[in-house]
Amino acid sequence: MNLYGWSSSAYGESVETFLYITDQTSWGWGARELARWGGALMMWQVGKRMPKKYGIEGDLRVALYDTANDFVDNGLAGRRFAGGDAAPNLADLAAFGVLRATRQTGAFRDLMAHSRLGPWFAAMEEAVGPSARLAA
């Protein structure tokens, strides 16, 4: 069960993600609710087709952990960042941007708990600094 009362189903996680995303906007009530529920439904539908499109078999969460660990093992190859020990490169920044955007979701928490990505993410937070999001 997550914060919003749904199990960790794919649809529940889609709703959780859109609740988080739309809480970050200054949209009016109607636009926000339409984006929340319509976006969650579309995300859930698209997500059902993605494993076949990309040849992912088995448990999707395990595939996510395996991909993160592959990044740590091969993309970082013992370095602090993909760009080397001194500073992140564009690959680091692109991956970090996607992960930071999902930070308040169950999927992010699971990824950090079940992969070896945590130290890299912490190093990226230190290197990049706090979010530059402008308050509305």
Rank of each mutant, 00 (worst) to 15 (best):
Y11T: 02
A113I: 08
S131D: 10
W6K: 15
N74A: 10
K53E: 09
W44R: 02
Q24H: 06
A40V: 04
G47N: 05
R36K: 13
G129Y: 01
A87W: 04
D85G: 03
A95T: 15
G83M: 08
F121A: 00
E13Q: 15
A91C: 15
S131E: 15
Q104P: 02
Y65S: 07
A77L: 05
G118S: 14
D70N: 12
V46K: 08
E33V: 14
N2P: 04
A35E: 06
S14E: 00
G75I: 04
R133H: 13
G84C: 12
Y4N: 07
F96W: 07
D70W: 15
F71D: 03
I21P: 03
R61I: 14
T102D: 12
A113K: 05
D73K: 14
P130N: 13
A40P: 04
A132C: 09
R49S: 09
R109S: 08
L34D: 11
T17M: 14
F71S: 00
G28N: 11
G47H: 02
A127W: 02
D92E: 09
H114T: 02
D92V: 00
S8R: 13
F18A: 01
N2T: 13
D92K: 00
S115N: 04
N2F: 11
A87M: 09
P130F: 10
N89T: 09
R36L: 13
G12K: 00
P130E: 10
Q24L: 12
G12N: 06
S7P: 07
A107R: 06
T22N: 09
W37P: 02
L76D: 03
T25Y: 08
